[in-house]
Lab assay of single mutants.
Amino acid sequence: MIINNLKLIREKKKISQSELAALLEVSRQTINGIEKNKYNPSLQLALKIAYYLNTPLEDIFQWQ
């Protein structure tokens, strides 16, 4: 199972779901689904999230 800290990191950086979704060219619902662990992002999307949040990938997504 993958645990993610996306919501915590996104809120710490004061970025809304809508703003992050626009940067990543995905829907706000996609961001919401990832934050709620409804599904895991593709590797490409995970890397883009880490890039736009300027945060190491392993700080956002962790195996458990």
Results as ranks from 00 to 15, higher is better:
residue 54 N to M: 12
residue 41 P to V: 12
residue 22 A to D: 12
residue 25 E to Q: 15
residue 42 S to H: 07
residue 64 Q to G: 12
residue 58 E to I: 07
residue 23 L to Y: 14
residue 16 S to M: 06
residue 39 Y to A: 10
residue 49 I to C: 05
residue 29 Q to P: 06
residue 21 A to G: 07
residue 20 L to A: 02
residue 62 Q to P: 07
residue 39 Y to G: 05
residue 25 E to D: 13
residue 18 S to Y: 13
residue 3 I to A: 08
residue 37 N to M: 06
residue 37 N to E: 07
residue 35 E to F: 02
residue 45 L to C: 05
residue 46 A to H: 01
residue 26 V to P: 00
residue 45 L to H: 03
residue 13 K to R: 11
residue 9 I to E: 05
residue 53 L to Q: 02
residue 20 L to I: 05
residue 44 Q to C: 11
residue 20 L to G: 00
residue 47 L to V: 14
residue 44 Q to K: 12
residue 60 I to M: 06
residue 14 K to I: 05
residue 14 K to G: 15
residue 58 E to V: 09
residue 18 S to R: 12
residue 6 L to T: 03
residue 6 L to F: 03
residue 43 L to M: 14
residue 22 A to G: 11
residue 34 I to R: 01
residue 43 L to F: 13
residue 58 E to Q: 13
residue 11 E to C: 08
residue 16 S to I: 04
residue 48 K to Y: 05
residue 35 E to K: 00
residue 28 R to G: 08
residue 63 W to V: 05
residue 55 T to I: 07
residue 3 I to T: 14
residue 58 E to P: 10
residue 17 Q to T: 09
residue 52 Y to R: 06
residue 5 N to S: 05
residue 49 I to F: 05
residue 7 K to A: 10
residue 15 I to N: 02
residue 63 W to I: 05
residue 2 I to A: 10
residue 53 L to G: 00
residue 37 N to I: 03
residue 30 T to D: 07
residue 23 L to K: 12
residue 57 L to V: 12
residue 11 E to N: 10
residue 19 E to W: 07
residue 51 Y to R: 12
residue 31 I to H: 00
residue 11 E to Y: 07
residue 9 I to N: 04
residue 27 S to T: 11
residue 46 A to Q: 06
residue 15 I to H: 04
residue 14 K to D: 12
residue 6 L to W: 00
residue 1 M to W: 06
residue 16 S to F: 04
residue 31 I to G: 00
residue 13 K to E: 08
residue 10 R to Y: 02
residue 7 K to W: 05
residue 32 N to R: 15
residue 6 L to E: 01
residue 25 E to Y: 10
residue 59 D to Y: 10
residue 38 K to H: 15
residue 51 Y to A: 10
residue 35 E to I: 02
residue 61 F to T: 01
residue 53 L to P: 00
residue 29 Q to A: 14
residue 4 N to K: 02
residue 23 L to C: 08
residue 13 K to H: 13
residue 19 E to S: 10
residue 9 I to R: 04
residue 64 Q to I: 08
residue 11 E to H: 11
residue 61 F to D: 01
residue 51 Y to C: 08
residue 23 L to N: 11
residue 22 A to T: 12
residue 34 I to Y: 04
residue 9 I to S: 04
residue 7 K to P: 04
residue 37 N to D: 09
residue 11 E to S: 10
residue 40 N to P: 13
residue 14 K to T: 06
residue 52 Y to E: 07
residue 64 Q to M: 11
residue 31 I to E: 02
residue 17 Q to E: 06
residue 1 M to Y: 07
residue 61 F to Q: 01
residue 60 I to E: 01
residue 51 Y to H: 13
residue 7 K to G: 07
residue 2 I to F: 10
residue 10 R to A: 02
residue 8 L to A: 15
residue 12 K to Y: 14
residue 13 K to W: 08
residue 31 I to L: 13
residue 62 Q to I: 10
residue 16 S to Q: 06
residue 12 K to I: 11
residue 12 K to A: 14
residue 28 R to H: 10
residue 22 A to Q: 12
residue 24 L to H: 01
residue 26 V to W: 02
residue 53 L to W: 03
residue 64 Q to C: 09
residue 47 L to F: 09
residue 45 L to A: 03
residue 21 A to L: 02
residue 1 M to R: 05
residue 36 K to V: 12
residue 3 I to Q: 08
residue 63 W to M: 05
residue 52 Y to T: 11
residue 62 Q to G: 09
residue 33 G to P: 01
residue 43 L to H: 11
residue 1 M to K: 06
residue 22 A to H: 13
residue 14 K to L: 13
residue 56 P to N: 08
residue 37 N to G: 14
residue 1 M to G: 05
residue 56 P to C: 05
residue 60 I to C: 03
residue 63 W to N: 04
residue 43 L to V: 10
residue 21 A to T: 03
residue 56 P to R: 10
residue 47 L to W: 10
residue 24 L to N: 03
residue 8 L to Q: 15
residue 9 I to L: 10
residue 56 P to D: 08
residue 61 F to P: 00
residue 33 G to V: 10
residue 11 E to M: 12
residue 39 Y to I: 15
residue 7 K to N: 06
residue 26 V to L: 06
residue 40 N to V: 15
residue 10 R to I: 03
residue 60 I to S: 01
residue 55 T to S: 09
residue 4 N to S: 04
residue 62 Q to V: 14
residue 2 I to S: 09
residue 63 W to H: 04
residue 25 E to L: 11
residue 43 L to P: 10
residue 55 T to G: 02
residue 34 I to P: 00
residue 22 A to K: 12
residue 11 E to Q: 12
residue 58 E to M: 08
residue 21 A to I: 02
residue 4 N to D: 02
residue 7 K to Q: 12
residue 17 Q to A: 09
residue 54 N to D: 13
residue 6 L to Y: 00
residue 6 L to I: 04
residue 54 N to P: 00
residue 25 E to H: 15
residue 32 N to Y: 11
residue 24 L to M: 08
residue 22 A to N: 11
residue 17 Q to Y: 04
residue 29 Q to H: 14
residue 38 K to N: 12
